[in-house]
Amino acid sequence: MSPARRRPRPIGSDWRNALFVAPYLFFFLALLVFPLFWGIWLSFHKADTFSDGPFVGLANYIRLFNDRVFLQSIWNTFYFVLLTVPTLAIVGLMLALALNSSSRLATVLRSLYFSSSVLSVTIVTLIWRIVFVPQFGLLATIYGWFGAEAPAVLSDPNLAMIGIALTTIWWCIGLPMMLFLAALQQIPVDIYEAAALDNAGWWRTLISITLPSIRRTFVLVLIIQIVLQFQLFGQSWLLTKGGPNNLTKPIVLYIYETAFRRWDVGLGAAASEVLFALILIAAMMQYLTSRRQEES
């Protein structure tokens, strides 16, 4: 057999290879790409739940940006992202640093911190309702021990979103912690050994070795969390129903109320497109900033 005959054919030359990606491609196109474009199309129509309605141009977008509740929901979403994403990244990193060892206690604690992530939003909000409920809740009981009255977290305009953020951080902390743990375990041990030989302290090692080594994971965690937290819905719906006075109503809850409870599908689709653009911009900005920093 000649050497030329033994050389494998380049993978890309055979169209049948496309069959391997066809199942995924089908679902990707049917469940993501098609709904995306259909949503854009609906946003230009006066559509309700049972009919597409006439073409109305930008009327839905004009209604949307004249709606103070929608503008409030944009602010609420950003405020929530601001409360949760940095906290999840920093607390997740701190937990990962603290639990990055092979001791039995660290293993148990890792499982414990991750366990809340496997719960459904219904269970999570049920647990936190029991904590927050006035008079009979855990918080009220603890305050009662000191003869004080617990704040009404879920109906206080200043505290309601913080309560939802706290619930979310408790629920979602497992994933960033695990991603950071995976990244920490990828750092070669010999770098730490070299640092130890140079008498580098814990802080110097963290700043000069650990953090630069996991920079990409940090960006990944930020992007994942931005995308996830922009889609806040279940916690708000189940804990406060968007109240008090719409102060915890995120964009997704606005979309749900508009499209499903009011049957105003065109307006809901327009709000969905705005949310899509916001997530895209936020994630891209984060990605481009980190890439520019890396290049410089």
Partner: peptide
């Protein structure tokens, strides 16, 4: 009463 949701008000 203030700050009670439906089930909390019922229990109260």
């Amino acid at each position: 009463t203030k700050n009670l949701d439906y089930s909390a008000a019922l229990n109260a």
